[in-house]
Write a protein that binds this DNA or RNA. Structure first.
Ligand SMILES: [Mn+2]
Ligand SMILES: [Mn+2]
Ligand SMILES: [Zn+2]
Ligand SMILES: [Zn+2]
Lengths: 151, 151
DNA sequence: CACTTATTTTGAACAACTCATAATAAAGCG
DNA sequence: CGCTTTATTATGAGTTGTTCAAAATAAGTG
């Protein structure tokens, strides 16, 4: 959201020979400000700066930025896709089955060892680990039920 | 698919005070026969035994069986949900970004250590690891592109 | 066999996302 | 700066995968 970030994002877009648009900067700022945001949440946040922005545009911008490696998309169960600007560090996620809360979790075993599974005929590029459990709030509240959508 | 399996499934259903129906047995048989099948694929397979079966019924049966722990659901990116009878062993999956092929992968580091991530305020119940890469077939064919839906 | 009620079917609706096309505006150029 | 080109966005509609409410069916019980 800072002009620092904005300048950096503009630079990255330029470097990819992409146009620097208000929509792209607004979406990047929204995702930076609230990590693991949904497309709807991004739209809501970005509209304070760019009221005429549409959900469809948010979808294409998110898709493009993800394709170009400027955003990362995660797809938790029982939730629409979520996006974040924290990329390239192979970090993982824990989602609470009580309230849907999503937390970042550093790679479980240290330095990207999850990239070498025990046996597979595939050349692994990505290891996406999704932990599911109950967060302390939900544990305190005695909630251990099924996933509920985030507000 | 064998009467062995069928008897076992009927027993599990009885043990849960659930009714043993043709639909449930047909769905279980279909998933057992083709692991990681989609609801559509299950419908197609089960209809050879039960032609009047509907997709909506397949959805509720799959959902129920998953809730009761008799099936496991995985949700790969760019794919509808998939189901399998291999449950309770914390195994993971590798999906080819070329052709969409899905393989089982045993827990990467041995005996369920993925259940203890480096740091989280959550009590972890499930560690779902999704590897994405390129399978040998696709590597040989020079395909490394975006995921395509399985036939 | 008849009864109760879980289960399935029917028909419709929904959420999240994608597509085709028209309108707009960012970048390059004179 | 104004003009042009074309990437990008907005508009409107469509699609996929899934869920829901209500009626019809059938599994289990006595
Ligand atoms: Mn994250
Ligand atoms: Mn599997
Ligand atoms: Zn929680
Ligand atoms: Zn492949």
């Amino acid at each position: 959201m800072t002009s620092q970030d904005t300048a950096g994002w503009a630079g990255q877009l330029h470097a990819q020979d992409r146009r620097v648009t208000r929509q792209r900067l607004a979406v990047l700022a929204a995702v930076e400000q609230s990590p693991h945001a949904t497309a709807e949440a991004v739209l809501a946040a970005a509209r304070s700066e760019l009221p005429q922005l549409t959900l469809q545009s948010v979808y294409v911008v998110l898709s493009d930025l993800t394709t170009w490696g400027m955003l990362r998309r995660i797809e938790p169960p029982n939730s629409p896709a979520r996006y974040e600007t924290r990329i390239g560090d192979n970090h993982h996620h824990a989602v609470c089955t009580g309230c849907g809360r999503i937390e970042d979790v550093d790679c479980a075993v240290g330095h990207a060892p999850c990239l070498t599974p025990s046996s597979s005929t595939m050349t692994i590029r990505i290891a996406d680990v999704l932990y599911q459990g109950v967060c302390t709030d939900c544990a305190d509240a005695g909630v251990a039920s099924l996933p509920a959508p985030l507000p």
